[in-house]
């Protein structure tokens, strides 16, 4: 008798019972969705070739050093802030518009950067203007690929880069620390130099947010602040563009900001640097050791004037 005595709450509602197949399908779809999210999360391994021509064979800094000692004022001005606030940078639905004096105006999303261009590993020295340095195994591609894609007109002389602007979520942009959004620029011939890359990853993985995800610039012969993070806009322009640090302190940060031990900054002598992880400082090299590739770009220029 008790065998057939089901309580009301033990009986599946007829409506739900009739939708049973749909429910299973939707839950399957949901799990597929989460699976695909996992695929595209930061743990995704990138496919890339190893560059031998421009990479240094110096010992690279550890993943931990590279990802927990950062200058990324959008995420806070302390060295550990970018790591602590990393999740506040929202990189979903990220697009980069490429415009200005070009034949082809393009908008690329973050997957385009991973799939459309031949990724390679470039192990570069990174010299911060604050007199410290690291060696980082970046994954990226030459900026040349973007220049070819956009086809700049004869008017284009410079490239202006713009970083993310999201004061609602980015703690550093809640105050006027710098002229937001962060802006940087290169002369077109500097941008065309094969050393100049756009990076999408490091240590074989997608860039962590604090390192400028999803796409950032790397210009290894210039001080670190030139290598703008989390780019949203690349414009080809005729006139020398404004740059954020130059607007903040024009006598301290010039447009070129090439690593130069002979031109000192009002706050830091640039003769030496600390390689992160080492105790004794080492001598800073002209153009951060990349002079053979870039010195010709500045021939005839007074580098104490055009610092």
């Amino acid at each position: 008798m008790s065998k057939y005595c089901l309580k009301e709450n033990h009986v599946t509602d007829e409506k739900l019972f009739n939708q049973r197949r749909a429910i299973i399908k939707s839950s399957l779809a949901f799990s597929l969705l989460t699976f695909s999210n996992l695929l595209f999360s930061n743990d995704k391994k990138l496919i890339f070739s190893k560059d031998m021509k421009y990479s240094t064979n110096e010992e690279t800094n550890t993943f931990k050093q590279i990802t927990s000692y950062n200058n990324f004022y959008e995420l806070g001005s302390g060295k550990r802030d970018p790591m602590m606030n990393a999740e506040k940078l929202n990189t979903n639905d990220w697009t980069v518009s490429i415009d200005g004096e070009v034949k082809n105006k393009v908008i690329l999303n973050k997957d385009d950067f991973i799939n459309k261009f031949p990724l390679e590993e470039r192990i570069y020295r990174l010299r911060c203007v604050e007199a410290w340095s690291m060696v980082v195994p970046w994954i990226g591609f030459e900026l040349n690929h973007i220049i070819k894609l956009a086809e700049p007109t004869y008017k284009a002389k410079y490239i202006a880069f713009e970083s993310v602007y999201d004061p609602e979520n980015l703690p550093g942009q809640k105050r006027n620390i710098l002229a937001w959004p962060y802006r940087e620029g290169l002369r077109l011939d500097e941008a065309r130099n094969p050393l100049t890359i756009l990076s999408v990853g490091l240590y074989g993985r997608i860039l962590p947010n604090q390192n400028g995800s999803p796409i950032r610039l790397i210009v290894p012969w210039k001080y670190g602040f030139k290598s703008i993070k989390s780019i949203t806009k690349i414009s080809f322009v005729e006139k020398m563009p404004d740059t954020s640090w130059n607007l903040e302190a024009p006598n301290e940060y010039g447009f070129y900001s090439n690593v130069n031990p002979y031109v000192s900054h009002p706050r830091w002598s640039q003769k030496r640097e600390r390689r992160i992880g080492e105790f004794r400082k080492r001598d800073t090299l002209m153009h951060n050791g990349y002079a053979e590739h870039v010195a010709q770009l500045y021939e005839g220029m007074d580098l104490t004037k055009y610092f």
Binding site: Y73, S77, R175, I177, R267
Partner: peptide, 9 residues
């Protein structure tokens, strides 16, 4: 004042 780059907090 002289050592701060931008954030005067």
């Amino acid at each position: 004042y002289f050592i701060i780059k931008a954030d005067y907090y």
